[in-house]
Simulated scan of single mutants.
Amino acid sequence: MPTTTHRLAALTQRLPARVRTGYWTRVVPVLALLAVVTHIPSFLRPVWSPDEGFLATQARMLADGGVLYDTVVDRKPPLLPWLYEACFTVFGSLSLWPLRSLAIVAHLVTAILLASIARGRWGNRAGAAAGALYLLLSIGLSPEDTQAATFEVFMLPAMVAAFRYAERRRWLAAGIAVALCSLTKQTGGAVMLPVLWMLFQDSRRRGVRWLPALSKIWFGFALPIALVAVILTKPKGFLFWVVTGSGDYASFGGAWVQMAGRALGNSAILLGAGLGLVLPLGHRLWLKYRHRPLPAAGEERGSTADLWVWLLSSV
């Protein structure tokens, strides 16, 4: 009688060769393992940050009949409170382990999408390196920011997906991804800037009309937000608590010294966390490009302007 091992081996042999030995078949398990290892500490505390506690409180109130942006309020979009509520409905509200597990999945999806972007531009090794470096640097800040199942973690997959869709000129999908990112945290909508930049560059290079593509982006962006604001929540409450009521965050008043201190402090922490990776990678890139031949007349190297626009919009 064949053993379980033999059955699995036979099943594996039936899979197409490109599945058994393909790029993603080899890369994704490594990225998954790295995502779990780097975020195991997230399970060591009941609550990592005040945001987790407040999200859990909102979820319990919603489960007991509360109404978002009426009897349950926060200056944040609704997707993550709804996700907490769904997890509490299925798994109970005594622990955040389901949310922490989903946060690891969000990190993994982000790493895979980043690997896809880098692979399409610079090849297989660059793709694997991009995914791995993201996961290693995803814990480069304080644990309260990197191990918690909060807004920033769950907005990342949609943010990177928006960039990837725009890169492939799938403008409607890019707009939807920007909307999902914004409905997780408002600042996620900053990815709209590189999306529009890529549309402008694509229309300039290919000589095509940009208005139809722009219409697709804005339709994809507006439709999910309108659905949430008008049908799934109260429009007036959504507008105040998500948009107009958060004006203090965008004002020019306030503690500039404290803000600058925190920004510089967190940047220094992230730089320190990545220093061990930056030095060998920088040396390798220097050796690679120092001996790279100059492009021939009329030949252009691949542009990275969209990546720089993405970086600046994120800042």
Score class of each variant (00 low, 15 high):
208 V>Q: 15
189 G>M: 05
211 L>K: 11
192 M>N: 03
198 M>D: 02
192 M>R: 03
211 L>M: 08
199 L>P: 06
198 M>T: 00
183 L>K: 02
203 S>K: 05
209 R>A: 12
207 G>T: 09
197 W>Q: 06
195 V>Q: 00
199 L>Y: 10
183 L>F: 08
206 R>C: 08
187 T>S: 15
209 R>T: 04
203 S>Y: 02
186 Q>F: 10
189 G>A: 08
204 R>N: 04
192 M>V: 13
195 V>H: 02
206 R>Y: 07
189 G>Q: 03
210 W>E: 10
190 A>I: 14
201 Q>F: 09
212 P>K: 04
204 R>P: 01
206 R>I: 08
194 P>F: 00
191 V>P: 02
211 L>S: 07
198 M>H: 03
201 Q>A: 15
185 K>E: 11
193 L>Y: 07
210 W>C: 06
211 L>W: 10
199 L>A: 15
213 A>R: 01
196 L>K: 03
187 T>E: 14
190 A>F: 15
195 V>D: 01
202 D>Q: 11
193 L>N: 03
206 R>A: 08
188 G>Q: 05
213 A>W: 00
200 F>K: 05
189 G>C: 06
186 Q>N: 14
202 D>E: 14
195 V>A: 01
191 V>E: 02
213 A>E: 04
201 Q>M: 11
190 A>K: 12
192 M>E: 01
204 R>V: 12
201 Q>Y: 07
210 W>F: 15
202 D>L: 13
201 Q>P: 00
191 V>G: 01
